[in-house]
């Protein structure tokens, strides 16, 4: 789907000087995987906290030949994904897709597509809180020194204490990782289920935090390991016994619905593009939407 772009603004909205500033930060980020590069974050027509970091990356790297996919919560059709996609197409005129396999550039909030990414693809993730150490230290001046000295003991201590108190690590999505045994990094609020997709991926991952004015990156084939203790391994969200009510997929991340008629729960692929593609290829739920108790 190609749209005609607005004549009132520059290609991809930002002026070329701003794009260069952001691309320089991206290059530095790629050169030091997992390191947070401060950058002169620009104000955009969408809200701070609504994906301006990811969007600035998209706008800085996009060219007329790109094919764009925008997702929020896994869905191409959610309101914020639409709003961002409409904005980017309005100021670039690029082609868009819902098929992650066809996209050259994917901007996402909270999910990494289920279908494995390929070499040459760029994934721009929106980041609300880029600093993993913010969980244990509020001051930026301190956390920068902690990264420099690789002083990650306070974070590990907090995880240990969480296990001692509750028997488990009390972290949900946005579960921190170690990059190449050097930098501790927030993967953006993707579910733990998606963390492994970062490890040794052939695609380039770019992370943008607009409000916090930080950019970081994982170049292709980077080692990314979720924080865990030897005897307390990293665990992803359980998908056990669940299948998508539409396409029958198992072992994917699900949206959950309550069936008010039966009181049971229903599940559906969170990645709407993936689900759609499976159904186009003929996949169906084996049992017709049987609610599980």
């Amino acid at each position: 789907m190609v749209k005609k772009r607005s004549k009132h603004y520059n290609f991809a909205f930002l002026d070329e000087g701003s794009k260069r500033v952001i691309r320089r930060a991206l290059l530095k980020a790629v050169a030091i995987p997992g390191y947070q590069v401060p950058f002169g974050s620009r104000e955009l027509p969408i809200g701070r906290g609504w994906g301006t970091g990811g969007l600035q990356i998209t706008l800085s790297v996009i060219g007329p030949g790109d094919v764009l996919k925008v997702i929020d919560q896994g869905s191409d059709d959610s309101v914020n994904a639409l709003s961002i996609r409409n904005f980017v197409t309005a100021c670039t005129g690029v082609e868009t897709t819902t098929d992650s396999g066809e996209a050259t550039l994917i901007q996402s909030r909270h999910r990494i597509p289920e279908a494995p990414l390929k070499a040459g693809q760029i994934m721009a993730l929106q980041v609300p809180m880029p600093e993993p150490l913010r969980l244990v230290e509020p001051h930026e001046a301190v956390t920068r020194v902690m990264h420099a000295e690789m002083d990650y003991a306070p974070m590990w201590l907090a995880l240990y204490e969480s296990i001692v108190r509750t028997g488990d690590i009390e972290l949900g999505a946005d579960y921190p990782v170690m990059v190449e045994d050097r930098y501790m990094m927030m993967p953006s609020p993707i579910p733990r289920f998606d963390n492994h997709k970062l490890h040794m991926s052939p695609a380039l991952f770019l992370f943008g935090a607009g409000r916090e004015k930080k950019i970081y990156a994982l170049p292709p084939y980077t080692r990314v390991v979720s924080l865990a203790f030897d005897d307390h391994p990293f665990r992803v969200e359980s998908t056990h016994g669940r299948v998508c009510r539409l396409c029958g997929a198992a072992d994917v991340y699900f949206d959950e619905f309550f069936d008010s008629a039966t009181g049971g729960r229903l599940y559906q692929c969170s990645d709407s593009g993936y689900c759609e593609k499976r159904r186009r290829a003929g996949a169906r739920a084996t049992e017709p939407a049987a609610p599980t108790a």
């Binding site: 003991a153 240990y160 296990i163 203790f229």
Partner: peptide, 27 residues
């Protein structure tokens, strides 16, 4: 000491800082 952490974690802190990543061993 970290006064708001469990006493056990206070001991574990030193072990963590020295590289231990084994919860049972530290406990």
């Amino acid at each position: 000491l970290r006064m708001f952490f469990s006493s056990g974690a206070n001991v574990a802190e030193k072990l963590i800082a020295a590289g231990s990543r084994n919860v049972r061993g530290m406990t």
